[in-house]
Computed example of a mutant assay.
Amino acid sequence: MSVLLSACGDDGGKGNATNTPTTNNNNTTDDETSSGGSEGNTSTGGPGGTTTNPTSTTTPGDPTETTEGESTTDGSFITPPDGGGGAKECDQWTQDCPEGQKCMPYSGDGDNAWESLKCTPVMENAGQVGDPCTVEGSGVSGIDNCDKGNMCWDVTEGVGTCVALCVGSPDAPDCAQPMTSCLISNDGVLTLCLPSCDPLLQDCPGNNLCIPNPQNPDAFLCVLDASGEEGQEFDACEYINACDKGFTCANPEIAAECDPMAIGCCIAFCDMTEAGVCTGQNAECLAWYEMGQAPPGFENVGVCGIPQ
């Protein structure tokens, strides 16, 4: 299941951020899993003001919309929260379902995108974070064998891994597990604690991408790769996870080779300490964070682009 993360918004205080469109993760079976219709603008930081577009179909600048499509994975598109969406019969933040049930995101309109919330049974011997898991029906059914407060994620042919849902509140999201970051998408329906990572090392497991967290300008997280056959440098993109590993979906204005009419463009991350790493016309390695604003360990993170 793939996830499309949308990217749009301001630069979140990162004066050098590039605009990052929505992301899409296509893992091959139920790739187009939409995490709900959240469509809000969030910034991912970076030169040029990286932003994420909440919807899974357009502009960079919002978090993400995740959909589960007909691919080898059960989730694919992620979009940021925008206040709309489907039926919300429970609250996944407070887990206010009756005893023996849990509040879960699911697709209520048959479009393979998470846009609704409902109470579903907690199975016996339910899985904990990191455990393998299975789903009933599809990856967007909302029914799995993970414990309360967890969800079966990255489902391929019915099998995935239990990940924790975010804790706290929509205004103050957090993750109980260390080295994870909260991603909110699909109109606030999808709230996942995904592994933190280093964009220069691209140290996510498997083929997962390390991209900016649309909700947290100080964090990068691992998401499914939805680039498919596209996603090379300077390719057009609509989602922050629609570029190959090592690239981010940014504002097309940052590179002369990008289509200025595109929603976003795949731009390479670069190490500020390495000279001559950028290949674009007049491109330099631009600091992702403003001077003195980088979190520890991310001081050298940059993105290739034309100084604005």
Score class of each variant (00 low, 15 high):
3 V>W: 04
4 L>F: 10
4 L>I: 10
6 S>I: 11
7 A>C: 06
9 G>S: 14
10 D>K: 07
11 D>C: 02
12 G>Q: 08
13 G>F: 01
14 K>L: 05
14 K>S: 10
19 N>G: 13
20 T>V: 14
21 P>M: 08
23 T>W: 06
28 T>V: 14
30 D>A: 13
30 D>S: 13
36 G>E: 07
41 N>Y: 04
43 S>K: 04
44 T>F: 02
47 P>L: 09
50 T>D: 09
50 T>W: 01
51 T>I: 08
53 N>V: 06
54 P>W: 01
59 T>K: 09
61 G>E: 07
66 T>D: 12
67 T>M: 06
68 E>K: 09
70 E>H: 11
71 S>C: 13
71 S>M: 08
74 D>Q: 14
75 G>L: 14
76 S>Q: 14
77 F>C: 14
80 P>H: 06
82 D>H: 06
88 K>T: 15
89 E>C: 00
92 Q>T: 15
94 T>I: 10
98 P>F: 03
101 Q>K: 15
102 K>W: 00
109 D>A: 11
110 G>T: 05
112 N>R: 10
113 A>C: 08
114 W>I: 11
115 E>V: 05
116 S>K: 09
117 L>T: 14
121 P>D: 15
122 V>F: 10
122 V>Y: 10
123 M>L: 05
124 E>H: 02
124 E>F: 06
127 G>Y: 00
127 G>C: 00
130 G>P: 06
131 D>P: 01
132 P>W: 08
132 P>I: 07
133 C>E: 04
135 V>N: 04
136 E>P: 00
136 E>V: 12
137 G>E: 12
141 S>T: 14
142 G>K: 05
154 D>Q: 14
157 E>S: 15
158 G>K: 03
167 V>I: 13
169 S>K: 02
171 D>T: 13
172 A>C: 00
175 C>D: 05
175 C>H: 08
176 A>W: 00
179 M>D: 15
181 S>M: 00
184 I>H: 03
184 I>S: 03
185 S>A: 15
185 S>H: 02
185 S>D: 06
186 N>V: 05
186 N>D: 13
193 C>L: 01
198 D>E: 12
199 P>I: 07
204 C>L: 07
205 P>M: 06
207 N>D: 15
207 N>R: 11
209 L>S: 10
219 A>C: 00
222 C>A: 07
228 G>S: 09
231 G>S: 03
231 G>K: 01
231 G>A: 03
231 G>R: 02
232 Q>V: 12
235 D>K: 04
238 E>K: 10
241 N>K: 03
241 N>L: 03
242 A>Q: 15
243 C>L: 05
244 D>R: 12
250 A>K: 03
251 N>W: 11
252 P>D: 11
253 E>P: 00
256 A>C: 01
257 E>D: 07
258 C>N: 12
261 M>K: 14
262 A>P: 02
263 I>M: 10
272 M>A: 14
274 E>P: 01
275 A>M: 12
276 G>I: 05
278 C>A: 09
280 G>A: 07
282 N>S: 15
285 C>Y: 02
289 Y>F: 15
292 G>K: 04
295 P>M: 02
295 P>D: 02
299 E>D: 14
300 N>M: 11
302 G>V: 01
302 G>M: 02
304 C>M: 11
305 G>R: 04
307 P>M: 10
308 Q>V: 09
308 Q>C: 00
